[in-house]
Write a protein that binds this DNA or RNA. Structure first.
Lengths: 192, 192
DNA sequence: TAAAAAAGAATGAACATTCATTTTTTTTAA
DNA sequence: TTAAAAAAAATGAATGTTCATTCTTTTTTA
């Protein structure tokens, strides 16, 4: 195993430990020493890979956000009809949030608290552009309600985060049928 | 001013300071010393009113949750038709979240992070019973989709939290028209 | 063998909570 | 009614701990 691979592995271990610990305890209740221990590394080593704790969390956020949107848009074709395109993206997002729950929980926590630097969060939003483009087309074709992106996002996408958190807490177990129901609710809320 | 009133005032000041500071910095980045300073009280005094920091936040959550649901259901009449009843409750909730933004933000943060003891959060959920009853009736009358309360909540109510947070961040300014659009999306997502 | 990477221990700041006093309020007795 | 005494409430200053970060030494790699 080369030096580079070893470095990548170590960085990945740190990111992974950060996600798990922050998910369970929150940012400020997660000491660097615990992150180090979980990643099997000395606390001092973290500072070879990251500037400080804030930077570690910012980078973790950016990493996972990119992974998330890559997955969401991997099968997206900008030329398909709006309805079909939306269903595809929505289901990819649902799949990510439910299969890759740890990562999605982390993103949700970052987006709902003052944990991440605001400038970093802003950058993360840009990754969603393909979905915003689709919605713009949908509005033009009068397939989607003529309302703002925020509103569409609030009803079509954001509820998945709530369902995911509820599932993580053990409040419910989302089956294929539930996903289909959720998709219908999402589409009903934004379609014209 | 009697002794009792003075105590109540002091407790209220502590609760208010807690909300403001936790909203802006999160639970763990809010020191007791700052809460004390903002409430114009010695740090030691907090411990006359609350057992410890966790208890302070738990009690704050319970207080605000009760205030929220009282407001939401104040004008609710269990005998009105489902659609009308839902519109009324929804609009009361929207009003609370947008007018009493500080309090609503605090609840959202509590519900989206491991900040509050889980047992306390569970208690808070019970306050929503009138809405769950309405939904049950709606399902029986085939006015509302035959799906779980979690799903209905995720689409009909939770998006308001997202919109509220976005507004607080300055991403958008919710007008009467936006509220109406949001209501339509909420109803469209759950109606049969 | 030199340079880079990693380690563990050390440092100093921040913090929740407690402690020893002081201030305020209430009670008692003239 | 008043003022002294007792009780309660409030305070600011410790206390001891936890933690992010840095420093010095050791280990690994080139």
């Amino acid at each position: 195993m080369g030096k580079l691979q070893k470095s990548i592995d170590k960085r990945n271990a740190l990111v992974k430990a950060t996600i798990e610990l922050v998910n369970n305890n929150g940012f400020h209740a997660t000491p660097m020493s615990k992150i180090a221990k979980m990643a099997d590394v000395s606390p001092a080593t973290i500072y070879l890979y990251f500037e400080n704790k804030q930077d570690l969390v910012n980078q973790t956020y950016m990493d996972i956000k990119a992974e998330y949107t890559n997955f969401a848009f991997a099968t997206h074709n900008p030329n398909t009809p709006v309805k079909e395109g939306f269903e595809n993206i929505w289901k990819r997002i649902a799949e990510f949030k439910l299969k890759d729950c740890e990562n999605a929980m982390f993103l949700a926590q970052c987006d709902n608290t003052p944990m991440i630097d605001e400038s970093i969060r802003q950058k993360g939003i840009k990754h969603l552009q393909p979905l915003l483009d689709l919605w713009e087309r949908g509005r033009n074709e009068q397939v989607i309600k003529p309302v703002s992106d925020y509103l569409l996002y609030a009803y079509a996408i954001n509820p998945l985060s709530f369902l995911m958190i509820s599932q993580k807490r053990g409040a419910l177990q989302l089956s294929k049928k539930h996903i289909e129901e959720a998709y219908q609710a999402a589409w009903d809320s934004i379609k014209l």
